[in-house]
Every structure is written in structure tokens, then in C-alpha cells.
């Protein structure tokens, strides 16, 4: 095994430990376990960063190409967003029970995929790649965080939670408001990602939009979240209804990210499966 693979497996293990601590802490209402989960997640994040950085230097480009690089970097962004959020709002620590299992499964799944080095081709050699990918990660990271907050809202909502050491400090309104803010941020980032992709496509191929499956599914994701925000801002979707909408919209985005490249033959396949 290479150094990079060993480092990444250590990160997977730490994420797994963090996920177990978070779930046990949540189920048995043990704040100490929740705190331990966050600390272990932070350690996993540091190790994960080393793994990504090591590969970045070795292959000469960021985590843009192939299932392994793409999904691993999304797990990284997810855990980073979670730890930043907890640093600002300690009461959100129970979020680890949703975030860390997803991060563990994401990185674990990525580790099982082929890890061959994919070179930057002439088409990919553009500044727009970095902009497009950066906003994709921000966008999907925001939607995943909104999903986790919505799940937590549904768990918390309707309970008095008096005396509950974990949920007692979490106001449903805070969760609802944060979920909305993350959906809004994700929607903005998704729009920028699509626009950057269109500009890049025009530079690389001479057309800004070709109704390629992944372009179409990106638009569908944008429309889905536009509907979620429209519902929130004009149709009064607050609380439970908004939480369900944020949860229901995420699979569309995940399909656009991972599913489309696997299901359809697309010019975008290179980024995920390398053809």
C-alpha cells in the first residue's frame, strides 16, 4: 500500500469512530460522547487533508477527476463544514450523528473505487475547472448540511426536550433557519457552478449548453431547489414542510453528481469514471 492509501484508510477509520461515538452519544444522550465524536472527526479531517494534499502534489492537480478523488473531496468538504459549524454553534454537535455516517460511507465507498491517476487533458486545462469544481463542492456541501439540519429538525420538532442534555439546547427555529440559510447558499453556489460550467463549455467546445445529461440534471437540481426556496419564501413552507422539502431535494443533487455519470454516456463521464 502506498503512503497515500494508508493515510486515507486512517481517515476512514477515524470517521468511522467519530460516527459511532456520535450515534451512541445521540441515542444515549451522552454529551461527552458527542464531544469526543467532534474531536475524532477533527483528527480525521486533518489526516484526510494530508491524504488529499499528498495526492494533489503527486498527480499535479486538485481532487477533480475520478470517483475516488471526487467523492473523497466531498466527504472532506462535508466534515469541514460540520466542524466549522460546530465551532460557531456548539449546540449543533448532535449534527454529527447525521454528518459523520455520511462522511464515513462516502470516503469508505471512494476507497473501494479505482484510484488510478487521471491526467488533465487539453479540455480540462482551464481556470474554469477550478471555479466550477470549487462552487460544486460549496453547493453540494451546503445542500448536504441543509439535509442534515432538516433531519435533526424533524427529530427535534414536536419534543419538549426539557432536561435533554443534547436536544434541549437546540431550538427547532434555529435548525429551521440554518437549514434555510444552507439551502439558500447552496442554491446560489449551484447557480454559479452552472454558469461557470456553461462559460467553460463555451470556451472548450464552442457551445455553452448542449443538454448533455449532466447539464440537464444540474438544471433539474437548480429548479428543484428553486421550488424549495419558492415554497419557503412565498408559500409559507416553514418548519416540518420545509425540512421535508430540503430532504427530498437532496437525492436529485446526488443523482446529478454521481448517478448521471454512472447511468448515462456523457461527455462529463471523465470527471467521475475516467472515460
Amino acid at each position: 500500500m502506498t503512503t497515500e492509501i494508508i493515510v486515507m484508510w486512517i481517515a476512514v477509520t477515524l470517521y468511522a469512530v467519530s460516527a459511532v461515538c456520535a450515534i451512541l452519544g445521540f441515542v444515549f444522550r451522552k454529551p461527552a460522547l458527542e464531544r469526543a465524536s467532534t474531536v475524532v472527526a477533527l483528527a480525521g479531517l486533518a489526516v484526510h487533508a494530508v491524504g488529499i494534499g499528498y495526492r494533489w502534489v503527486r498527480v499535479g492537480h486538485g481532487p477533480f477527476l475520478g470517483f475516488y478523488e471526487v467523492v473523497s473531496s466531498y466527504a472532506f468538504v462535508g466534515v469541514a463544514a460540520f466542524t466549522l459549524l460546530v465551532a460557531r454553534k456548539r449546540v449543533l454537535q448532535p449534527l454529527a450523528a447525521v454528518v459523520m455516517p455520511i462522511a464515513f460511507l462516502g470516503l469508505g465507498g471512494a476507497m473501494l473505487a479505482p484510484k488510478s491517476d487521471l491526467a488533465i487533458t487539453g479540455t480540462l486545462a482551464s481556470w474554469w475547472l477550478a471555479i466550477h469544481v470549487a462552487f460544486a463542492k460549496l453547493s453540494y456541501g451546503s445542500f448536504i448540511t441543509a439535509f442534515c439540519l432538516a433531519v435533526l429538525f424533524l427529530v427535534r420538532e414536536g419534543k419538549t426536550a426539557k432536561g435533554d442534555p443534547l436536544l434541549g439546547k437546540l431550538a427547532p427555529e434555529t435548525l429551521d433557519d440554518l437549514a434555510f440559510k444552507f439551502v439558500a447558499a447552496g442554491f446560489l453556489f449551484l447557480g454559479i457552478m452552472i454558469a461557470a460550467g456553461a462559460i467553460w463549455a463555451n470556451e472548450a467546445w464552442g457551445r455553452y449548453w448542449g443538454w448533455d445529461p449532466i447539464e440537464t440534471w444540474s438544471l433539474i437540481s437548480w429548479l428543484a431547489y428553486a421550488l424549495v426556496l419558492h415554497g419557503r419564501l412565498t408559500l409559507g413552507w416553514r418548519g416540518r414542510r420545509f425540512a421535508w422539502a430540503a430532504i427530498a431535494a437532496l437525492p436529485i443533487v446526488l443523482f446529478a453528481l454521481v448517478g448521471v455519470a454512472l447511468v448515462y454516456k456523457s461527455i462529463h463521464g471523465a470527471y467521475l469514471i475516467g472515460y
Partner: peptide, 11 residues
């Protein structure tokens, strides 16, 4: 919703 569904069917 209709535009999203139509686009999804198109794929």
C-alpha cells in the same frame, strides 16, 4: 416542477 419533470423525462 413541470419544467424539472419534463427535463428529467427527456434524459
Amino acid at each position: 416542477a413541470a419544467t424539472a419533470v419534463w427535463s428529467a423525462l427527456a434524459t
